[in-house]
Lab assay of single mutants.
Amino acid sequence: MTYKLISNGKTLKGETTTEAVDAATAEKVFKQYANDNGVDGEWTYDDATKTFTVTE
């Protein structure tokens, strides 16, 4: 399945996607992506749209 990340960081804003077997796997990928880009904030997940959002 395709999962989307919306980043509302102070230094990184935008969207990216990943293919993953489940939401937990996608979350690990996205949290590593955010960490690699210096984004640390509040996370939410919408199962209906398969979208994670991180806001700093």
Rank of each mutant, 00 (worst) to 15 (best):
D40K: 13
G38T: 03
Q32E: 08
V21W: 12
K10D: 08
A23M: 11
K13M: 11
T11V: 12
T2M: 12
A34N: 02
E19C: 14
L5H: 01
G14Q: 13
T2I: 14
K31F: 05
G9D: 04
I6T: 05
D40Q: 14
G41F: 04
A26K: 01
A26G: 01
I6P: 01
T44K: 08
F52C: 00
N8W: 14
D40M: 14
A24R: 10
A24H: 09
D40N: 13
G9Y: 07
E15P: 09
T53L: 07
K13G: 07
G38N: 09
K10C: 14
M1W: 13
E19K: 13
T44I: 08
N35E: 13
A34D: 01
T11A: 10
D46Q: 04
V29N: 06
Y45A: 00
E56W: 12
F30V: 00
Y33S: 02
T49P: 00
V54T: 02
A26W: 01
T53K: 06
T18A: 07
T17Q: 09
K10P: 15
D22L: 03
G41V: 04
T25D: 08
Q32H: 06
T51D: 00
G14H: 14
E42P: 04
T49S: 09
Y45D: 00
L12D: 05
G38R: 05
E27D: 04
V21D: 10
N8C: 15
E19V: 15
T53V: 07
T44D: 08
E15C: 15
T53F: 11
A20Q: 07
Q32D: 07
K50M: 09
E56A: 09
F52K: 00
L5T: 02
M1L: 11
T11C: 15
S7D: 04
G41P: 02
D22E: 04
K4I: 12
K10F: 12
K4M: 08
L12F: 15
G38W: 04
K28S: 09
E15V: 14
A48D: 11
K31Q: 07
T53R: 08
V21A: 12
Y33I: 09
D40I: 14
A48W: 07
F52N: 00
E19L: 14
K28W: 09
T49K: 06
I6R: 06
N35P: 01
A23I: 07
G41K: 02
V29K: 09
M1E: 12
K13V: 11
D47R: 07
V54K: 01
K4V: 11
Y33D: 01
K4H: 13
E15H: 10
I6C: 07
G9K: 05
M1S: 13
T25G: 08
D46H: 05
T49M: 06
N37Y: 11
L5S: 01
Y33Q: 03
K50A: 05
M1A: 12
A20C: 09
D22G: 03
Y33M: 07
K13A: 10
E19Y: 15
N37Q: 10
D40E: 13
T49N: 08
V29E: 06
A24L: 10
Y45N: 00
I6D: 03
D22P: 01
D46A: 03
W43A: 00
T25H: 12
D40V: 14
L12P: 05
T11Y: 13
N37R: 13
V21L: 12
D36P: 01
G14R: 13
F52V: 00
V54P: 00
F30Y: 01
Y3R: 02
G14E: 12
E27R: 09
T25Q: 12
T51Q: 04
A20T: 04
G14N: 11
G41E: 01
T53N: 04
D47N: 07
K10V: 12
Q32C: 06
L5F: 08
Y45F: 06
V21T: 12
G41S: 02
E15L: 14
T16G: 04
Q32A: 12
K50R: 14
T25M: 11
L5V: 03
T49R: 06
K4T: 14
V21I: 13
N35C: 14
T11Q: 10
Y33H: 04
G38C: 08
A48Y: 10
A26M: 02
E42W: 12
K28R: 13
I6E: 04
K31H: 08
A24K: 11
D40W: 15
K50I: 02
A20D: 02
G41H: 02
V54W: 04
F30P: 00
T17P: 02
Q32P: 01
F52E: 00
E27G: 06
N35T: 13
Q32F: 05
M1I: 14
E15G: 07
T53A: 04
A24C: 13
D22R: 02
K31R: 15
L5D: 02
D46L: 04
T51H: 01
G9N: 08
K13N: 10
T18L: 13
D47F: 07
T18F: 11
A26F: 00
D22V: 02
E27M: 14
D47Y: 07
A34S: 05
A24V: 10
N37E: 06
T18Y: 11
E15S: 10
F30C: 00
K13R: 14
Y45C: 01
D47M: 09
K4A: 05
F30S: 00
E27H: 11
T55N: 09
A26Y: 01
N8R: 11
A20R: 02
T16N: 06
D46I: 04
D47S: 12
T16I: 15
D46F: 04
T44C: 10
K31T: 04
T53S: 07
L5Y: 03
M1G: 11
G41L: 04
T55E: 06
K50H: 12
S7K: 04
Y45T: 00
A23V: 11
T55A: 06
T44M: 08
K28A: 12
T16R: 12
T49Y: 04
M1V: 13
D22M: 03
D46Y: 04
N37F: 10
T55R: 07
T53W: 10
G38S: 06
F52I: 01
N8P: 05
T17H: 09
